[in-house]
Write a protein that binds this DNA or RNA. Structure first.
Lengths: 222, 222
DNA sequence: TCAACAGTGTAACAGATGTTACACTTTAAT
DNA sequence: ATTAAAGTGTAACATCTGTTACACTGTTGA
């Protein structure tokens, strides 16, 4: 079994462990390998252990890491899979997880996670933070999706990303990706953008946006 | 100060405390009272302590407990306010919180929460579970919102709530509430429902729904 | 019994977005 | 430099949803 790089894992990075080998040996867990295209987790399956992806990459169909709606999220080792669901009352996975290549999954029992959290403050806060960040991400997406008009979404998004009025800022998405992010059709987004440019509310140059009239922009959100 | 009913609080209920008085005295925290209509938390404020509502009720404008979009959520004591954000990297409150009556808020420093979690396993799992449930709730809402057509939302919702094909089941929302839940206009929902009834896919009697053709219902979601 | 009201069905119309198609520009690779 | 591919602007049209309005039903309480 290949050595796991703990420092790269969002929930383990802060662990100060002298004896990494010993730490992993003491951890009660089972490791299982999967072939390419093998189904690792089926939607609805009970989640009673933390699934830690230690090698390879997997895909899940859900809200993706970069925010696209119902797209395919690709997760690379090392990262926990759906850690938030381990403690929920209805502890079922919301999605299928499929191996994209040769994959190793470390399955750590819930009780063991609890033990880790109780004994290692750094692990606990990392784990909490990781989940909290995910929650905040979901909240933001929900706010954006609950805005019904395309112009409203654009306004919300630009106001959230701008530094200050009149100062140009980069959006690291092209128009097609932005449309996916908003969950709208690309030509529809283009139309809305060009109307907002026409009205003198914003200006756009490639991926560089400038807010010209933040007051009117705010009014659009409703 | 009025005595707090710990057993009713979702994150404290499992605490086995002989000396409740002593427990609260040992807890490093500050309590503050607010008048009716007073702003307790401003959107964007830094969240570096757990805000526990110990008395009264507050409102926040966000995704509500019963799932309505951008509605006003009313929270009654005892319940923590936005516990998920305490540990997030970008620890800012996403919403305003306003007192609906005379309110008491117990502000517990993050370090104190960490201490509690480290020393009281029951508190830790309750806290984790509460946050996890919230995450799962958000995930479900996001899935529903990402479906763009009204019929699709209806299909997703009914399939999720039905016991089995052909067996009637109750939805504890009227049509108006259901429309709010989906984030659509009431007449639009009525139209979609009547079309689906016309097509023989479902039948509806007051709040009792029956799935007649689950295959076609599944096709609608897309 | 009656009135008031919430809840529902439905229609006409307006507005927003999706779909499809195509031309044009920019970028990257050869 | 040339070409292919990706990205963008835009138009015409179809479709869906929201808005507004009104009639009808069932429920509730006086």
């Amino acid at each position: 079994m290949k050595k796991v790089d703990l420092s790269a894992c969002p929930v383990c990075s802060k662990l100060e462990i002298d004896d990494e080998e010993g730490f992993l040996n003491d951890l009660k867990c089972s490791t299982k390998a999967y072939q390419k295209n093998e189904l690792i987790i089926r939607q609805g399956e009970v989640c009673d252990a933390l699934y830690m992806l230690t090698l390879g990459s997997v895909k899940t169909e859900m809200i993706t890491e970069n925010g696209n709606i119902l797209g395919i999220e690709i997760i690379k080792a090392p990262r926990p899979l759906a850690p938030a669901f381990l403690f929920s009352d209805n502890n079922h996975f919301p999605v299928d997880v499929t191996a994209l290549e040769e994959v190793e999954i470390m399955k750590i029992p819930k009780a063991e996670i609890v033990r880790l959290m109780m004994t290692k403050p750094d692990f606990m806060t990392s784990f909490m933070t990781h989940n909290a960040n995910r929650t905040q991400f979901l909240t933001n997406r929900l706010q954006l999706l609950s805005i019904k008009t395309i112009k409203g979404k654009v306004a919300h998004f630009l106001l959230e990303n701008s530094i200050r009025d009149g100062k140009p800022f980069e959006i690291n998405r092209n128009q097609t990706e932005l449309a996916d992010f908003f969950g709208v059709a690309r030509p529809s987004l283009a139309r809305s953008l060009s109307e907002m440019i026409q009205e003198g509310i914003i200006s756009v140059n490639k991926k560089e946006f400038t807010i010209l009239d933040s007051k009117r922009l705010r009014q659009i959100i409703v």
